[in-house]
Nucleic acid binder design. Structure first.
Length: 280
DNA sequence: GAGTTTGAAACT
DNA sequence: CAGTTTCAAACTC
């Protein structure tokens, strides 16, 4: 079973206007993948806008230049045929297993491997296209994701560039903050559903979370066993509720314990004064 | 291991 | 841009 050929206009658009693909990126072909279900079809990366389907003049314009992204650099620096992603060490994630995607073919940002720019190797996923055998589909999906969000493949947590970063880190402060911020509503007990908490950073002014307790001065975060801690009212980063305290936090990572100590300063989280230190 | 909860991503 | 749906990870039992 094979998918219908993608619209010609889209093929041309991708081939001609994609600024992220290396020059030697292979021409797009009909993908030898099975026909998606209705659900998958709706969400699949093969979905293209009416403009693309019709090849409207609007879409024939060259894409506006955008800042180089992490994946831009990676794509342009290495040939796509090499297993560049899977060889990349993931310094932020030490999962025992990789993804378990079922419906996204690992070509959506739902997929952690795809999101991190890795091929799926040794994953529990089904119908996976995030591998060497589906390079075309993969690069197509990367393009789609980048068009939607040029920063889609950028690290979600930015390291602090604040003063004394290294020395602060040495002192055990949490480093950086989530670039987009979270929008958590119910994980008041600091669970890994929250991307900030998962990344071992405090919620910042970027977050729009409610009932947030993932902030520096929360003592509950100190005392909570492993990952789970009690919490308060609202995102203190946005309300200016940044107090003075020291937090020692042991995350319940599978293979490593993570010790975080947030030292306190008079600076707000805005100033990126929090830092992280990871202990083996 | 199955079912539930959760929030990001995708979509309308 | 807000609301809704889909998705997969995290979590609970």
């Amino acid at each position: 079973m094979s998918l219908p050929s993608p619209p010609l206009a889209k093929k041309l658009q991708v081939q001609q206007s994609s600024s992220i693909l290396p020059q030697d990126f292979p021409k797009l072909e009909v993908l030898p993948v099975e026909k998606p279900t209705k659900l998958q079809e709706r969400r699949s990366p093969q979905h293209v806008s009416p403009e693309l389907k019709q090849g409207s003049p609007k879409m024939e314009r060259p894409l506006l230049p955008r800042p180089a992204t992490f994946i831009d650099v990676m794509l342009s620096s290495q040939k796509p045929s090499s297993d560049m992603w899977s060889e990349t060490k993931d310094v932020t994630l030490t999962r025992k297993t990789n993804c378990s995607c079922k419906y996204s073919k690992c070509l959506k940002l739902y997929c952690e491997c795809f999101q991190k720019g890795r091929y799926c190797i040794g994953c529990n996923c089904t119908n996976c296209c995030n591998n060497v055998n589906h390079e075309n589909a993969r690069h197509d999906a990367i393009n789609v994701a980048l068009e939607r969000n040029p920063a889609a493949f950028m690290p979600k947590v930015s390291n602090s560039t604040a003063h004394n970063c290294e020395s602060k880190a040495a002192e055990g402060d949490i480093v950086g903050k989530h670039t987009k911020g979270c929008k958590c509503k119910r994980t008041e007990y600091l669970k890994k559903y929250c991307e900030c908490f998962k990344a071992s950073v405090f919620c910042s002014e970027n977050c729009r979370c409610t009932g947030c307790k993932n902030f520096k001065s929360n003592e509950d975060r100190i005392s909570q066993k492993n990952t789970v801690h009690a919490h308060n009212v609202q995102n203190p980063a946005s309300s200016g509720m940044v107090g003075q305290s020291v937090i020692i936090f042991h995350a319940a990572e599978n293979d490593s314990s993570l010790s975080l100590a947030a030292s306190v300063s008079d600076h707000s989280i805005n100033n990126n004064t929090s830092h992280l230190i990871q202990v083996e």
